[in-house]
Simulated assay, not measured.
Amino acid sequence: MLNRRTFTVAAALGAAAIGAPLVHGQPKLEKSKISIAVGGKAAFYYLPLTISEQLGYFQAEGLEVEISDFAGGSRALQAVVGGSADVCSGAFEHTINLQAKNQYFQSFVLQGRAPQIAIGVSTKNMPAYGGVADLKGKKIGVSAPGSSTNMVANLVLSRGGLKASDVSYIGVGVAAGALTALRSGQIDAISNTDPVMTMLEQKGDVKIISDTRTLKGTQDVFGGLMPAACLYASSEFVQKHPNTCQALANAIVHGLKWLQTAGPGDIIKTVPETYLLGDRALYLASFDKVREAIATDGIVPADGPKTALNAIASFDPTVKADKIDLSKLYTNEFARRAKDRFKA
């Protein structure tokens, strides 16, 4: 027997179906219940995911999405590789690291066109900092070991003549715990995302030594456009669930389109209160800083994957650039369709 709520929903859906045929003849989803793993959802790095979730864009595509938040991208990646999540909202470069281990994963919609990661040294622990060599033997806080915050730190160290083994990496997350770790002197430097880095910078807690929160800063560090946050899944999942991947891409691109015109007040009203870390003004100052780093249409730029590969291969001996097939790292077909649909 239909209970009242089911009947009401069914009646509403029936009326909607009569009143308006399915948008673009939406094909049937192979899987409507989707679990997404993310590492540090409160960071601006994943703002498009949060916006699409909070504004109901996944539901509008017929998806029931469950988002599990982990301390960092490497933990979220483990959940997807291990099969406890279908899709990862994570860093593009993870698809490269996985392929180097003969595991094929594919990005299918881009959320960020710059890593939005800054590295700062503690003004309290290292007041006389003079260069990267001074970090030898120091403790560096990252969201989680193996995450993109760790990757950017490794790149900066290698350019300064240090190896990853010359420092100690400590996982501090991307929220209040990261602020506490730096301010209490538990770590000497930090590689993290916003709003954490802007909060530390504005209070004079850190001196920024490398910054990929802007497109120019990213160009300076990586020598080109560096695709960042994206939704990725195993190539097998993408092949078996094209309509589901299309629905996910649609929801994200819808969120990206909304973000293009959203004002500070709109952002504050949409994200959970805890994301503001107790300081609205600083949260909005951080948003202004990273706004241009957010993708506009979900499409991975043509030269982006090569930039990412060159960066990783420069310090990670397990990644051989000539052995990586760039074309298998991503597909833009879903994002292109979503872009056309939402005029992003």
Rank of each mutant, 00 (worst) to 15 (best):
K31C: 10
L49D: 02
F287T: 06
G298Y: 00
A15M: 14
A311H: 07
K306Q: 15
S168C: 04
L22H: 08
S147H: 10
P227C: 05
L282R: 14
P264T: 04
D322S: 14
I324Y: 05
P115S: 06
A228L: 01
K136P: 06
L49R: 00
A144P: 04
L284H: 02
P115N: 01
T123I: 02
G304A: 02
P227E: 05
S35V: 15
I294E: 00
A311D: 08
A228S: 13
A164C: 02
F237T: 07
I187S: 00
Q186P: 00
E201V: 12
H94R: 08
I34G: 02
G56Q: 10
G177P: 06
T6M: 13
P264C: 09
E30N: 10
F70H: 14
A16Y: 10
D279F: 06
G265D: 15
L256Q: 03
L49K: 01
R280Y: 07
K320E: 13
T307D: 05
N310Q: 14
P317F: 09
H241N: 15
A79Q: 12
L182N: 03
I268R: 04
L2S: 10
T6P: 00
V238S: 03
L231I: 03
G73S: 06
A37H: 05
I267W: 04
I96K: 01
V206Q: 09
E30S: 10
S84M: 12
C245V: 13
S143N: 13
G39Q: 04
R291D: 05
R183L: 06
S35G: 03
A60F: 01
D325L: 08
F315Y: 15
A91V: 08
N250M: 07
S122F: 11
F7G: 02
A76F: 02
H254M: 12
M197W: 01
A37W: 02
K339Q: 12
A144K: 07
K101T: 10
V9L: 15
K207W: 01
P195T: 06
G171L: 08
K41Y: 11
Q116I: 13
V9A: 13
G204A: 08
I67C: 06
F7E: 15
K323W: 01
E236Y: 02
I140D: 04
D194M: 05
G255Q: 05
Q26L: 11
L22G: 08
H241Q: 09
F7A: 15
L200S: 06
L282G: 12
S210P: 09
P264Y: 06
Q26R: 15
Y57R: 07
L231C: 03
Y275S: 13
P195E: 04
V300C: 01
Y275A: 03
S158K: 14
F44G: 08
A233N: 07
L282V: 13
L215M: 11
K138Q: 12
G204S: 10
K216P: 04
G298C: 04
A15T: 11
T318F: 09
A344I: 02
Q99E: 12
K343I: 01
L22I: 12
A313E: 03
I252Q: 07
M1I: 13
A100I: 04
F58N: 03
G90V: 05
L182S: 01
K320D: 14
